[in-house]
Structures are given as structure tokens and as C-alpha cells.
Amino acid sequence: SEIVVAMYDFQATEAHDLRLERGQEYIILEKNDLHWWRARDKYGSEGYIPSNYVTGKK
């Protein structure tokens, strides 16, 4: 599975969105859409994140 790191904070506005915290790692579950990826955080929460807010883990 692909691990990404959040470059920016993202506040979830929709129920299906996942909040991003800058510097935290997330697991990508689905990339069915170019701009919104389904991800899981370290607490096990899942939701959609803006793909341009994250970068591949170095």
C-alpha cells in the first residue's frame, strides 16, 4: 500500500472527507478520482483527501 505525507492541513467539510494534519502519514486506499483519493489515517479513520495536499513518502 502507498504511504503519503500531508504537506498542508485540510479541514474535512463533508462527512466522507478525512482531515489532514501537516506532516502526518496516510495510507492510500483508492485513487479512482484524480483530485480526491480515499485514505486512512493512523487512528483508522477513512475518507477522501485532496490529492494535491499530499506527497509520496521519501
Rank of each mutant, 00 (worst) to 15 (best):
I27A: 07
A12M: 06
Y8H: 09
D9P: 05
K42L: 07
R38E: 03
D9L: 04
M7A: 05
T13R: 13
D17V: 15
G56W: 14
G44Y: 03
G56E: 15
H16Y: 11
D33K: 07
D17G: 15
D33E: 08
P50D: 05
I49T: 03
I27T: 12
A6R: 01
V5Q: 05
R40N: 05
A39F: 04
Y48D: 02
L34I: 12
L34Y: 10
V4L: 05
Y53V: 05
L20K: 00
I28K: 01
L34C: 13
G56I: 14
H16C: 15
I27Q: 09
I28N: 00
S1P: 15
S45I: 12
A12E: 07
N52Y: 09
E25A: 08
S51M: 07
I3F: 08
A15S: 12
P50M: 05
S1H: 14
G23W: 05
N52V: 10
E21K: 09
G47F: 05
A12Y: 04
S1C: 15
E25R: 06
H35G: 12
Y26C: 01
R38H: 08
R40A: 07
P50H: 05
V54D: 02
S51H: 07
Y53F: 12
I27S: 06
K42N: 06
A39I: 04
K58A: 14
A15G: 10
G56F: 14
D33N: 13
G47D: 01
I27P: 01
E30M: 10
E21A: 05
E14R: 14
I3Q: 04
Q11H: 14
L18K: 00
H16A: 11
N32Q: 11
S1Q: 14
L18G: 03
E14W: 11
L18N: 02
N52D: 12
A6I: 04
T13M: 12
L29W: 03
L34M: 12
W36L: 07
G23Y: 06
K31G: 03
Y26Q: 00
Q11C: 11
E21N: 06
T55R: 12
V5G: 01
M7Y: 05
R22A: 13
H16M: 10
E25H: 08
H16D: 12
A6D: 01
Y48K: 07
R38G: 03
A6S: 05
P50E: 04
W37F: 05
E21H: 09
K31H: 07
L20P: 01
H35F: 12
G56H: 15
W36M: 07
S45D: 13
L29N: 00
A15K: 13
L20S: 03
S51W: 05
L20M: 09
D17Q: 15
P50K: 05
Y48F: 13
Y48E: 02
D17P: 08
G47M: 02
K57Q: 10
I49L: 05
E14M: 13
G44Q: 04
E30W: 08
Q11A: 12
F10Y: 15
A15F: 10
H16W: 14
N52P: 06
K42V: 09
R22S: 10
S45T: 12
E21F: 10
R19H: 11
V54K: 02
E2D: 11
I27N: 05
Y26I: 02
A12S: 12
A15Y: 09
Y26H: 00
V54L: 05
L18Y: 02
V4W: 09
W37T: 00
Y53C: 12
L20F: 04
N32M: 12
I49N: 01
E2N: 10
A15E: 14
H35Q: 11
L29Q: 00
E25S: 09
A6H: 00
Y43S: 08
H35R: 10
G47T: 04
E2Y: 12
Y48P: 01
E2I: 12
K57D: 11
E46S: 05
E30T: 08
L18D: 00
L29K: 03
A12P: 15
K58S: 15
N32R: 12
E14I: 08
E2M: 12
S51F: 06
A12V: 08
R40H: 04
N32S: 14
T55S: 11
L18I: 06
W37L: 03
D17S: 14
L18A: 01
Q11T: 13
Y8A: 09
Y53A: 09
L34K: 15
G23M: 04
I28M: 01
E21T: 09
M7P: 01
Y26L: 03
E25F: 11
Q24G: 09
I28V: 12
D41I: 02
A15Q: 11
N52A: 14
E46V: 10
F10I: 05
R38D: 01
R19D: 14
K57M: 11
G23R: 02
N32D: 11
V54P: 03
Q11P: 13
E25I: 09
Q24K: 08
L29F: 04
E30R: 04
E30V: 05
Y26T: 01
L20V: 04
S51T: 08
E25Y: 11
W36P: 01
A12K: 08
